[in-house]
């Protein structure tokens, strides 16, 4: 059972276009299609149309896009739920390289700057570090992040200060290591989040949590960091 569906897609090729424009496409679709399948059909018709994608099942984080005004992953967004014409734009706030492809360096820079790696100062044992199932449970909802940038690019604080505010994705990872019973750098991690911008530009409007395609909750993680900070400095 096939039918047609209308799409309006952001196009911009700096080699040929003086400014971006929206291009309409009408394609045949079938029930059960994801947005990525539809975009691939458009690409098959018009190979000049460019977007990132890879795994097709929501684990690689390549195809974060703005879909009818909301950020999400094309590969796990069913077209059945989308209002027509489906407006597809690049993730907001980041420089556009071409069509739906954005330059994610600001986002990656903030990720790197929270030192997203386990840091242990004690000598390493010859076995695994012991961690109770309860302590391990504290990492659920944190470690699953796929760095798709849906959250940070839906956050007004990140739009205004992408160079100073760490953004929800990086802060979620900051908390992932603070919450890890094996990590021994909590004090340093907290110190590095001090100041008016890095952490405290978050005003808990929860855009990040609402769009996360993995169902994670950066707002809550940010709240936890703030709580620990308070205890730490009082």
């Amino acid at each position: 059972m096939s039918q047609t569906m209308r799409f309006s897609i952001y196009r911009y090729n700096p080699e040929t276009d003086s400014k971006p424009y929206m291009q309409d496409y009408t394609i045949e679709v079938h029930a059960g299609m994801m947005l990525r399948d539809a975009l691939l059909k458009i690409k098959a018709e018009d190979e000049s149309f460019v977007f990132r994608h890879s795994c097709g099942e929501g684990v690689c984080g390549s195809d974060g896009l703005n879909i009818n005004g909301t950020n999400g992953l094309a590969c796990i967004t069913p077209i059945a739920v989308l209002k027509q014409p489906v407006e597809v734009r690049p993730l907001p706030g980041l420089p556009v390289i071409r069509d739906l492809v954005v330059d994610m360096e600001q986002f990656y820079h903030q990720y790197r700057s929270i030192k997203p790696y386990l840091t242990v100062h004690d000598p390493e044992p010859e076995e695994e570090y012991r961690q109770s199932p309860e302590d391990r449970d504290k990492l659920d909802g944190l470690y699953e992040c796929i760095l798709c940038a849906s959250c940070s690019t839906s956050c007004p604080s990140f739009w205004w200060n992408p160079d100073k505010f760490r953004g929800p994705a990086a802060l979620l990872q900051a908390y992932r290591f603070i919450a890890d019973s094996r990590d021994q750098s909590t004090a340093q991690r907290l110190d590095e989040l001090e100041g008016p911008y890095r952490l405290f530009r978050c005003h808990s409007i929860m855009n990040c949590t609402n769009v996360c395609p993995k169902g994670l909750n950066p707002t809550k993680a940010i709240g936890e960091i703030k709580k620990i900070m308070l205890k730490h400095y009082v």
Binding site: Y117, L118, V120, E124, E128, Y129, Q131, S132, P133, D135, R136, L139, Y143, F177, D180, R182
Partner: peptide
Amino acid sequence: EHAGVPFSR
């Protein structure tokens, strides 16, 4: 595991 992999326990 020492590098940080969050193995189930």
